[in-house]
Nucleic acid binder design. Structure first.
Length: 329
DNA sequence: AAGTCGGGGCC
DNA sequence: GGCCCAGACTT
């Protein structure tokens, strides 16, 4: 049996799952965060929120979510807008290709789905920019499908509740893979409560069961949580120190950053987009002018370097590059 | 499996 | 300063 096949064998269903359902759903009913994408039934608005929330914290998304929907109130508005405008509104959320892909999704839905965002995971996965998490989130949160989905919060919370500490425990010396975690999420999905359950897991992960500094004393699942039980057994008092120490033991640290961020391609890509969004519509900037504007002590020796970055941005659909210069697409 | 892609907030 | 974040895509 291959390792991959073996790893997909379902784990035994935890015996505390019914109690966990009741505790977490009750906690969510009382303590849930008031988030605007939870009070809309517009699949488009939920799509916008889910793309924005990829690798971006809720507090940073909140204002931009409102601004974006004010600028592009409907899917059709987004589809027909100039891409340059979409990219400009997106700043400074980061991962700017998300803006290009979001508009691409809107245009594809208009052209191929009669303007209705798909409601199944399989169809959603066909749209570039929507992976398994976002597909599940849209199916569940926009259409109330009873599906499991796994993001970084849900992965951490489910692991701690049902499997124990992510690192350092005897039971789970290696973190389980994505497919295994999705299977677990599907096994413990409470009947008919997918929406509240998935939202509740993310709320708990974002506010109490955080990565490095969980507040177990405030947790509604303290008496049923496997990780909390392990910490008690090992006489580890739940604290940020414990989790940071465990992570260090696991040698998970990706080691040294060979260069400062302000000398990375990432940094200069951001600088270029931020500069181009200040130009008037259609205006191009020659590379010879762009270089000194984004890099101090820019010299002609940097021309090849700059062209490489610009080519990469053009390939990602983030700018329009000709002999005359560059501009947003 | 490992790299790439942003940027702001928090410790 | 390092780590974190409602991930997805490419190689």
């Amino acid at each position: 049996m291959s390792k991959q096949t073996q790893s997909l064998v379902p784990l035994p269903l935890p015996d505390n799952v019914t109690q966990v359902h009741a505790q977490l759903l009750q906690w969510y009913e009382a303590e849930q965060r008031n988030l605007p994408w939870r009070t809309t039934s517009d699949p488009y608005a939920i799509l916008v929120s889910e793309i924005m929330l990829q690798q971006t914290q809720v507090d940073r998304v909140l204002p931009k979510y409102q601004q974006f929907l004010a600028a592009f109130p409907t899917l059709a508005d987004l589809a027909k807008a100039p891409t340059a405008e979409v990219i400009s509104v997106w700043v400074p959320l980061g991962y700017n290709t998300r803006a290009v892909r979001l508009q691409s999704i809107a245009r594809q839905v208009i052209a191929e789905y009669n303007g209705r965002i798909p409601d199944t995971i399989d169809e959603l996965l066909k749209l570039k920019g929507i992976g398994r998490y976002t597909a599940g989130a849209i199916a569940c949160f926009a259409y109330h499908k009873q599906v499991a989905t796994v993001d970084t919060n849900i992965r951490r919370v489910l692991h701690r509740i049902f499997l124990g500490l992510e690192v350092g425990s005897r039971q789970t010396e290696q973190p389980i893979n994505d497919a295994q975690m999705l299977l677990l999420a599907e096994q413990v999905l409470p009947e008919g409560e997918a929406y509240n359950w998935n939202q509740a897991l993310m709320d708990l992960g974002a506010t109490i069961c955080t990565s490095n500094n969980p507040e177990c004393t405030r947790c509604p699942l303290q008496n049923t949580c496997q990780a909390y039980t392990e910490m008690s057994q090992y006489s580890l008092f739940p604290s940020g120190t414990v989790f940071r120490q465990l992570k260090k033991v696991a040698e998970k640290k990706s080691s040294y950053q060979s260069q400062p961020f302000t000398s990375t391609n990432r940094y200069f890509r951001g600088r270029i987009i931020d500069l181009l969004r200040t130009l008037s519509i259609g205006q191009r900037m020659p590379l010879a002018e762009l270089g000194p504007r984004i890099k101090t002590e820019y010299s002609t020796d940097d021309a090849a370097w700059l062209q490489q970055i610009v080519t990469g941005l053009a390939r990602d659909g983030l700018l329009d590059y000709t002999e005359e210069g560059v501009r947003l697409p």
